[in-house]
Amino acid sequence: MELWIHLPLYLAFMAGKKVMRRMFIGQLAGMLLACGICAVAIFPATPPAAASASGAPPAKAAPALDPGEKIFEQNCARCHVPPMSFSPRVTGTIIAHMRMRARLTRKEELQLLKYLAP
């Protein structure tokens, strides 16, 4: 067995051993993922607020969200920037398309319609 296997991970990483680098990166990614999951479990989720985008801006504390807005934040805004202008006459068509993509229920579709085209 080679000597570098017994080195601490960070020293092996600095020394440039490719296998150890992969191990280090893999362990780092695993730890980050574990920390993230723990954070989700520990910290209470706050209701999401207005603007979200594919960069998933943070949710701000809001008094009460419209059910349709909540569905938009929790589903659509995971991939989409909220539209600045959205003609009501195309809203039904767009939401039907997105319901198919995002596998939403009929109830969620109706709440979205009421939020985007009241």
Binding site: T91, G92, T93, A96, T105, K114
Partner: peptide, 18 residues
């Protein structure tokens, strides 16, 4: 899920080709 169909619709949303 059939019960969900009874949610009232109060929306100005249209269904035009896009």
């Amino acid at each position: 899920a059939q019960s969900d169909q009874n949610v009232p619709e109060h929306s100005s949303a249209g269904y035009t080709p896009v």
